[in-house]
């Protein structure tokens, strides 16, 4: 390293030049640069794609192999769409962690101080992170979901147990794969900003999505039947099922409620971001 000296025009240089100012669009670009320039983003998204596509194919293949031994009841309940989309449940781990990291990674490393001195109004950072994250996740996970569906149906077609996008509820469920994962991630973004720690954020997110339903199951059944459909996980996953279960919410109603939960987390994050010291 060489000892550089300051050889620049007087202070009037950049500062005086018009056009340098913070705009929502510029914050969005900045957050896109941040997202794409981290290896954790690449790995998480790659993992999520592989989980959705590969697990869907694998489980479809397992069902085909096992079809002869399956009972008539099993065959009756067989949901070719659900089977080919089973990877979504694994991918939510990768996407959820990535969502939490968008903020907790900045708090953990101290980057948040640089971010908030550049954008002292703070809220544009939250919206920009949410928008960039949602756009990237939605595009990639929707493509993955459709790929998993088509490949899975290809595998299932060898036994003629496949379905098509034209069947009622199927297109919604396949779109739902991308939508569900996107909102899981947004819930993670909100919790990450609220809790600030990666470990705490991840524990809370998956406590809500995975552990809460298990605990609710231990309640007296007339309680749990009334609570379970409205849990974030059950509400969000309603959109993934083609075979409608009378106890769960209707696909779009459930998804709307799930979006509501994510909105509450993001709103809480907005209040905390504005109020708390960085």
């Amino acid at each position: 390293m060489t000892a550089a000296t300051v050889e620049r025009p007087a202070p009037s240089g950049l500062a005086a030049g018009a056009g340098y100012r913070v705009t929502p669009w510029r914050v969005l670009r900045s957050e896109w640069t941040k997202l794409r320039s981290l290896r954790s983003t690449l790995f998480s998204l790659l993992a999520a794609i592989v989980f959705v596509v590969a697990l869907g194919c694998l489980i479809s293949w397992a069902r085909v192999q096992h079809w002869d031994q399956e009972s008539p009841l099993e065959r009756l309940r067989f949901d070719p769409t659900g089977v080919s989309l089973s990877g979504v449940f694994l991918a939510q781990l990768a996407i959820g962690v990535l969502g939490v990291l968008t903020f907790s990674g900045e708090y953990g490393t101290g980057m948040i101080r640089a971010t908030l001195t550049a954008v002292p109004h703070r809220l544009p950072v939250l919206w920009a992170k949410a928008v960039v994250f949602a756009a990237v996740t939605f595009v990639l996970m929707t493509i993955s979901s459709f790929t998993a569906f088509l490949l899975g149906q290809g595998v299932l077609s060898s036994r003629h147990i496949d379905t098509t996008l034209g069947h009622p509820g199927v297109l919604t469920a396949v779109l739902g794969g991308g939508l569900y994962l996107t909102v899981v991630g947004l819930l993670g973004v909100g919790l990450g900003a609220l809790i600030r720690s990666t470990a705490g954020g991840i524990a809370t997110l998956f406590g809500i999505l995975l552990v809460l339903p298990l605990i609710v199951h231990f309640l007296p059944s007339n309680w749990s039947d009334n609570i379970d459909p409205y849990l974030p996980s059950s509400a969000g996953q309603a959109i993934l099922s083609v075979v409608h279960d009378p106890t769960s919410m209707a696909p779009w109603n459930g998804f709307a409620l799930f979006c509501g939960y994510a909105a509450v987390a993001l709103a809480g994050a907005a209040v905390a971001l504005r109020r708390r010291d960085a």
Binding site: R21, R26, R29, S30, K34, S37, M111
Partner: peptide, 10 residues
Amino acid sequence: HLLALAQTHG
């Protein structure tokens, strides 16, 4: 890092 900060201001 610097690019991301710079982009917020254009």
